[in-house]
């Protein structure tokens, strides 16, 4: 099984048949291979979070089909099976922490799976390590005394301890300071390096997504504006013209040069190289 996610002609309508009826998703088609990281990008109200809820069966499609790990998400009897495979971390997950100490918080999910306490313990420790926390020093602390960034990592550990095949993170960077954002990037990169697990990151920040993703989906008002590999996106001038201010800094330079019809001399893959390119352009213009 290589297609871990298979979405066909998916549409979703909120409150159909009422004055508040709203089409949140329209005719979405998408396939994701096992081990890939998908970045789901769009503005407020584009349908990103609706799509996440459809992937783990919190919502059923109004039309079309969603298959995740081979399971049709609209079959109610299979939902328990589905939830073991798909871990969804909501926005600001630190707000939903409720246990009195960190160990019980992270152990909550595995215990509900009916695992033996020895297995629960090993999962808790592994999950805390995966989010860059030292389990031995932490497990007995109360989560309320920790900073928001650390609490968010604990909430994510709670989902990782379920060992899901697909991890969905809704705006994992939002509200973190630059240091916290970098830590979160590291956690996600490490998971990706394992190679077999899939991850979906929902974000309104294209910079984060480009730095991490294998594939990118851009949603706009419920429609899929773009779906493909990062390299394809960077070739697509039409799409980029609308989102160029959201690109990482070095790509903003590349795009701005392309848009002015300047040929760039070499592959620019970081900001230093972009700066050298600019210097070269100045000196060649002075020379003429």
């Amino acid at each position: 099984m290589s297609n871990i996610i298979d979405i066909k002609d998916l549409s979703y309508v909120y409150l159909p048949g009422t004055p508040y009826e709203q089409q949140a998703l329209k005719d979405i088609n998408m396939v994701l291979n096992q081990g890939e990281l998908l970045g789901l990008f769009g503005g407020n109200g584009s349908g990103k979070s609706t799509l996440a809820k459809l992937l783990n069966g919190l919502l059923y499609p109004s039309r079309g089909k969603v298959r995740v790990c081979g399971i049709d998400t609209s079959i109610k009897e299979l939902r328990n099976e589905l939830w073991k495979k798909v871990g969804l971390v909501f926005q600001y997950p630190e707000q939903q922490i409720f246990e009195a100490n960190i160990y019980d918080e992270v152990a909550y999910g595995p215990r509900n799976l009916g695992l033996k306490e020895a297995e629960v313990k090993s999962r808790v420790y592994q999950a805390l390590e995966k989010v860059g926390l030292l389990p031995e020093t932490l497990v007995n602390l109360s989560p309320v005394k920790l900073s928001g960034g650390v609490r968010r990592r604990i909430a994510i550990a709670g989902v990782l301890a379920l060992e899901p095949e697909i991890l969905i993170l809704d705006e994992p960077m939002a509200g973190l300071d630059p240091l916290g954002q970098e830590l979160m990037l590291d956690i996600i990169k490490k998971r990706q390096e394992m190679g077999t697990q899939s991850t979906i990151i929902i974000s309104h920040n294209l910079k984060d997504i480009i730095a991490l993703a294998d594939k990118i989906a851009i949603l706009e008002k419920g429609s899929l504006l773009f779906y493909g590999e990062v390299a394809e996106l960077l070739e697509n001038i039409d799409i980029l013209s609308r989102f160029h201010l959201e690109l990482p800094d070095y790509l903003q330079v590349v795009y701005a040069l392309k848009a002015r019809g300047k040929r760039t001399n070499r592959d620019i893959s970081n900001l230093d190289e972009a700066g050298l390119e600019l210097i070269q352009i100045i000196s060649s213009q002075k020379g003429n």
């Binding site: 160029h244 230093d272 600019l278």
Partner: peptide
């Protein structure tokens, strides 16, 4: 970027606030 370019002896205007503006000015 501004610092890199200025170290080569070119002066960048203080009003430049975005990368597209910088590229445009340099071109």
């Amino acid at each position: 970027l501004i610092q890199q370019v200025e170290e080569e002896g070119y002066r960048i205007d203080d009003n430049i606030k975005t990368i597209p503006q910088l590229v445009e000015m340099i071109c």
